[in-house]
């Protein structure tokens, strides 16, 4: 106690000085608009910087939950696309909200990617969704950023997907400009680039053109993005282009994908079979 009193006695002038300074400065920052704004903006900047750092750290903890939330939302939205529906009588227009569930052609089923490869010439993915959850062989697989591949094998809870990065992968594609059907394949070299062949030379192709899935495909949802034309390699011998296409999907960082079920596939297949039988 004595020590404190002695300390206060010896430093009374500096202490009083600091107190009076604090009083003046608090008045200065409180009652003067300019000073108040400078003080507040400094304060906000500091607090904002701290908060941003804090958020940068804590956001990692909720990343998984956020991801799942996004996948759920994406599924919901993808299943509401007009192109998921195909009515028998296409002359009857219908607004998306009134489209009957019976007309649904495509259903998007979310799935987590549990293994993935890009290094080999025959690349496969494994998804955590199988026959018990509605997956069947030959269904299409897409990611939010573009086409991924085709289901080639399925167990009750898992399925194997042949990626676009596979030498036997073949997807019918169309240029967004309208015409020019072709085939997207992979040459087995660079996982960033695919090739689009059999596009007739009558079509004007330019760098940057968008490559989409075709409406004539049985399994892929129509007009889903595959990639962008990177360069045009003219094939002198044939009458078709050979295009180098930059894939819109980053195959090295896939986390979630959607298996696309074509609900009208069985009917289409049956019809095809019966036609063959009639013709033979």
């Amino acid at each position: 106690m004595n020590n404190i009193r002695e300390l206060l006695g010896r430093y009374s002038a500096p202490i009083l000085f600091l107190l009076l300074q604090a009083a003046s400065l608090s008045m200065l920052f409180r009652f003067n608009r300019y000073h108040e704004s400078v003080f507040l903006s400094l304060y906000n900047e500091f607090a904002g910087a701290v908060n941003a750092r804090y958020d940068g750290v804590t956001s990692y903890f909720s990343l998984r939950r956020q991801n799942e939330e996004l996948v759920r939302q994406n599924t919901l939205l993808l299943n509401r696309l007009r192109s998921d529906f195909e009515r028998p009588d296409t002359s009857q227009a219908a607004a998306p909200a009134t489209l009957p569930e019976g007309d649904r052609r495509f259903r998007f089923l979310p799935a987590k990617v549990i293994s993935n490869s890009v290094g080999s010439r025959k690349n496969y993915l494994m998804l955590h969704r199988g026959t018990d959850q509605g997956v069947a062989v030959n269904m299409a697989v897409v990611s939010p950023s573009g086409v991924v591949g085709t289901v080639v094998n399925a167990s009750p809870n898992m399925c194997i997907v042949m990626s676009l990065l596979h030498q036997q992968s073949k997807v019918v594609a169309v240029l967004k400009k309208g015409s020019g059907y072709g085939e997207v394949t992979w040459d087995g070299r660079d996982p960033r680039f695919l090739s689009l062949s059999k596009v007739p030379k009558t079509v004007a192709v330019a760098k940057g053109d968008t490559v989409l899935t075709s409406r004539y495909s049985d399994k892929f949802p129509p007009d889903y993005i595959i990639g962008y034309v990177e360069s045009v390699l003219e094939d002198q011998v044939t009458s078709t282009y050979n295009l180098r296409v930059r894939s819109s999907v980053d195959f090295t960082s896939l986390q979630y994908a959607f298996v696309v079920a074509n609900l009208q596939a069985a009917e289409m297949e049956a019809l095809r079979k019966s036609t063959q039988e009639v013709n033979e």
């Binding site: 002038a13 009083l16 000085f17 009076l20 300074q21 009083a23 003046s24 400065l25 608090s26 008045m27 200065l28 920052f29 409180r30 009652f31 003067n32």
Partner: peptide, 23 residues
Amino acid sequence: LGIGFLYGLVLDMFTHTPGLHAS
């Protein structure tokens, strides 16, 4: 210190800058 503070404060009243001259 007390005199300095008060003296500055009185001037602040006239110049409408509370705390500036006091400090």
